[in-house]
Amino acid sequence: MSKRSEHVEVQRPTRGESVYARYLRLPELLSLQKSEEELAHHDELQFQIVHQVFELWWKETAFELRSISRLLKEANLSEALRLLQRVIRIQYLLLENMRMLETMSPWDFHAFRKLLAGGAGSDSPGYRELQRLSPLLWDDFRTLLATAGASLSDIYLQAGRYPLLHAFAEALIDYDEVMQTFRFRHYKLAERMIGAATTGTGGTPMPLLERTIHDMLYPELWEIRDRLSTLAQEDGQI
C-alpha cells in the first residue's frame, strides 16, 4: 500500500446522511442552483445546470491537460495519449450538454436573459484555462519530435517508425477539431437564440463571435495535410 493511501482519512457521514452524499458533497452541490421559488423563468434552472456542468468538466479537462504536459516532458507518450483520448471524450460530452439548451425557445431565453447582465461565455474561467493550457501541449510535442530527430512530415511519411508520435499527433488534431466544432455549435446556438445581427450578452457582436469558428489550436497539424497532398501529387499518387 502506498503512503498516500495509508493516510487517506475516511470521513464518517453525519446522522441521516449517506456515504454517497457525503463523498460527492451533494448538499453543497445541489445548493448551487436557484431554488424553484427564486427562478425568473422555468428554463433558468436548466440554463444554470448546463453551464455548471461545463465548468465541472472543464475543471477535469484542465487537470488532464496539466497531467498530459507533465507526461510529455517525461517522454511517457503512451500514458499521455490515453489521457488525451479522455480529454477528447469530455469535449464530445459537452457538445451534447450544449444541445440541452436547444429545448428552450428564443422567447423563453429572453424572459431571463437580462439577469446575465454583461456576462458572457468568454468570461468562463474553465474555458479560459483550456485556451491557456491547450497550446502548451504543442511545445511539449515539438520537443519530443526534436528528441526523436523527426519532423512532422517524418511521422506521417514513416508512421510505422514513429507509431506513438503519429498517434499523438492525430489525437491532437482530434482535440483541435472537437474544439472547433464546439465553437461552431456555440455560435449556432447563440444565433438560434438571439439572431445573427444582435449583440451577445457580453457585448460581443455576433459577426465577431462567428470569426472564432475558424480558430485553431494546432495550425501546423492542419498545414501538414497540404504538404502531404503536394507530396502525393509529386509522387504521382493523385
Rank of each mutant, 00 (worst) to 15 (best):
H110S: 07
A196G: 06
L137I: 03
I194T: 04
E170C: 11
T199C: 06
S151Y: 03
A167P: 00
A171E: 15
L189D: 08
L165Q: 03
G119K: 04
S153Y: 01
R113I: 03
L136K: 12
G200M: 05
H186W: 03
D176M: 10
K114I: 02
A148E: 14
L116C: 08
L189P: 06
A117C: 00
S122R: 07
I213E: 14
R161A: 12
L144Y: 02
Y175P: 00
V178L: 06
G119A: 15
M206E: 06
G203Y: 11
R161W: 05
H110R: 09
L209M: 15
A196W: 11
R161V: 07
D139M: 06
G160L: 11
T201G: 13
P205R: 05
L144C: 13
T201P: 11
S124I: 01
D139I: 06
P207R: 11
L136P: 00
L116A: 15
L144R: 14
D174T: 01
L165N: 02
E191Y: 01
F168C: 04
G149W: 01
E191I: 01
M193W: 02
L145T: 06
L130W: 03
A167D: 15
R132D: 09
G203E: 11
L136W: 01
G203P: 08
G160T: 13
T181L: 14
G200R: 05
G195K: 09
R211H: 05
P135R: 05
S124C: 07
L208D: 08
F182C: 00
S153N: 14
A120D: 15
K114A: 11
I213M: 13
Q131E: 14
T199D: 13
L152W: 07
R192E: 02
R128G: 09
E177W: 03
F168T: 07
L130D: 02
A169L: 09
A197E: 13
A150E: 12
A169T: 05
M179Q: 09
I213V: 13
M193P: 01
E177I: 00
L145E: 03
L164H: 07
Y175C: 10
A148M: 04
T181D: 09
A146K: 15
Q131W: 01
G195E: 07
K114L: 10
T198R: 12
Y127I: 12
T204A: 10
L189R: 07
L164T: 09
A150G: 09
L164N: 12
H110K: 07
D123E: 14
A117V: 09
D154R: 04
R183N: 01
T181N: 14
